[in-house]
Design a protein around this nucleic acid. Structure first.
Lengths: 239, 239, 239, 239
DNA sequence: GATGAATGAGTGTTCATTCAT
DNA sequence: TATGAATGAACACTCATTCAT
């Protein structure tokens, strides 16, 4: 699914194709979509392939026509949904004109709009929940998503540092700091957030805003000129 | 688990107890520990009760002597590991003397030392992975962990605001901002982090440090006097 | 089962049905038949569902395709085999021309031929053996079999009384007197009678004949004109 | 249990025995009693040995001290409860002075009072329900109960025939005719009768009375001088 | 290609039986 | 002798996978 976001299954093929044929072509996509939803909701093991099939409107046997096993279905779901959009994003980044702060804000917004608030965010939850059971696909994810993502974020941060907008940073870990709140948000949305009585006073957009503000300027009203190195009460290495 | 709630595994009685009796008292704790490990590693459904039993050194039948079903075992695992430590922590918070910043730093450190770097962190991952499959226990978790945790964090932030140390904040969402990176860390550690070649240049302590620095003082070298409201390129409500 | 209710085993459709389809239609009936045999032989609890399945020529899994649980299989067995034949019998009774004695004789004969000497008699034994374990289905049996049966017998007796052929009777209990020997026979046949070296000098038909003779005319050679009320040696109410 | 009826377990041993010792001696009896009750109620397989033990007030382990297995417990229950009282009864029969009819009435009454309405009747239900699963003990039952019982009844009938009180009979089958209604009654009481709303208009004593009246004098008001041989409408051997 | 009936290996759970205390 | 914790074989039931149609 190279350019997903909206209809990840199949582009309405030229009018020449009969409805039946179009469906046939769409099958794998419909199955993957149904599988994604169910895997996200209930986890890999707790999802029945009958359920996937019937949600996709086909019989159980048909599913196995397209995917040789439930595990392969899982892998396909992950693979399809994390297809690298990083090229596109990197380009967007390069062409962005404005401060590093603005770029960061922009990235969070775009991330939320294109991934976070769509079904695609489920893939993150799925990946984290099942990582240990699918080491192979986890490595794939690591190479296809985590590393490119980290690189992209590091580029943004470096840009800010180079321009003197950001202070010097431990890039390696700062990149995780940038990324963590978004990943948390996506996981939350698909787990606890989906279980507790609606809303509960938590609004993703406000959460992101609050995070960006803190990230850029800190919580402190009157910032120390030089942020203190960690030296506070009991030292970290005390345990 | 350095300072666990009630040390369920340690033999309570002195040498007077026979070997068999001592083991009997230890059983539930040993089973819960084994179950925690496996549930965290593989998820609820993919964990076999035989495995839990044999990792605890008993037969499958014995497990059912202590827990009436696999599901009850799951619930017990969660309950056992989140037993309210908030009273203790609240007290610690009240008696803390120092700035709000220092308090925040201290909390992260303690959180990491007492939970994050112990096996107990696994239940966070467990809870998030399985939330949808166990709505009942998710609500319990919400009441026993999330709400008290949020309250605790809000108290810290309020303290900083009251003292003029922090700027005014949307407490509701700022509390999530504070909490998110730690939760991310615990999930990461038990999923992707456990799969990629050891280390990979990621050190939890450094990550936390980087986060705290950013949280308190922001990434910006020369902070804007007034943090800009979200107004950047396309508005957030565009979706 | 010569004149079964709906012949669930027979292939309904002609040669048009494929081998597989024909089997599918026959499955439930075959399973019910196998289950009846085994439940009668060994009781509900001692019967293994694998056994039922393999006697029906299918695998264990297939059984659960047709019956959601062993208990539902049991209920289905009972229901299937007691489907109301009372309408038919009542009609036969109404149209019978002859003395009440002859009618009674005829009923015993028919009962034996259509039920007693067929596998259907087994469910009587089954029902009585398992009644306490299946109160729900016992009530069903009570309504569907016992009450209609009693009513039918009472009708016969009333006919005899009305015509002056029988003396006045306590209908309620006399109906049980009529019915008891047949039920005994069916239970016996499926329990002790199936264990002792074949025959043992007991022939059902002769037993029935002996019973009918006794029932109609008594054992006494020279009957008292007025049957003595119970007044014999120690009174009945002595306990 | 040679002469049971009342306390089948153990005679209150001389006052010298402490309560503890007396209980010890009583153990096996208490276990057998508990087992009888439960086996009758729920059948052999559905009865848990824990239940038997705890109803007898001992632990599960103790039960196995007295009975090497559940099967042996079953056999012991049957053996203990069908101990031949036929010697005693034969003697009573020999010494009975009165007509064969009176003797028969008396026997039914005594049977009901001493067995039918006591827990001992449960053994009959148990035996018939489980006969096929315990062929060995069924043979034992056959020799110890059925045959002596048949002989006793035949003796009574012969006595009536010899005295001209009864007409000539097929002794073999007539004996079953005599015995069937009582056995039916005992089974009924322990199965369907225990499940339907209390009583339901069925009183054992009235049932027995009705049966005896019918058995001795027939239902017919004006008996045929010579009871017709079975020759009625469709012949018996038609099937 | 699509179906869904059939399969059987695999899982949670029970319970008679054992045995250290 | 009595206990009850521990066992493990056995069972009901599930579900991914197959394959005749």
């Amino acid at each position: 699914m190279p350019s997903s976001t909206s209809t990840p299954t199949a582009p309405a093929s030229p009018a020449s194709a009969s409805k039946r044929e179009r469906r046939k072509e769409a099958r794998p996509g419909e199955l993957l979509e149904a599988a994604l939803e169910l895997f996200v909701e209930k986890g890999f093991a707790a999802t029945r392939v009958d359920e996937v099939a019937s949600r996709a409107g086909v019989s159980k046997g048909t599913l196995f026509l397209y995917f040789p096993s439930k595990e392969e279905l899982f892998k396909a779901v992950v693979r399809e949904n994390i297809a690298g959009r990083f090229a596109e994003w990197n380009a967007e980044l390069e062409s962005f004109e404005g401060s590093a702060s603005d770029l960061l804000r922009y990235c969070y917004q775009v991330w939320w709009e294109r991934i976070g608030c769509t079904k695609a965010s489920g893939i993150t939850k799925l990946m984290i929940s099942e990582a240990q059971n699918f080491p192979e696909i986890t490595l794939f994810y690591q190479h296809e998503v985590i590393q490119p993502g980290q690189a992209l974020v590091r580029r943004i941060l470096q840009r800010g540092i180079d321009s003197g907008e950001f202070r010097p940073l431990d890039l390696n870990h700062a990149a995780y700091v940038v990324v963590a709140p978004m990943i948390f948000l996506m996981m939350w949305k698909h787990s606890v957030g989906a279980c507790v009585p609606e809303g509960a006073g938590f609004a993703p957009e406000k959460y992101i805003t609050a995070h960006v503000d803190a990230l850029l300027h800190g919580l402190c009203a009157a910032p120390d000129p030089a942020p203190a190195p960690i030296s506070s009460p009991p030292s970290f290495s005390s345990l």
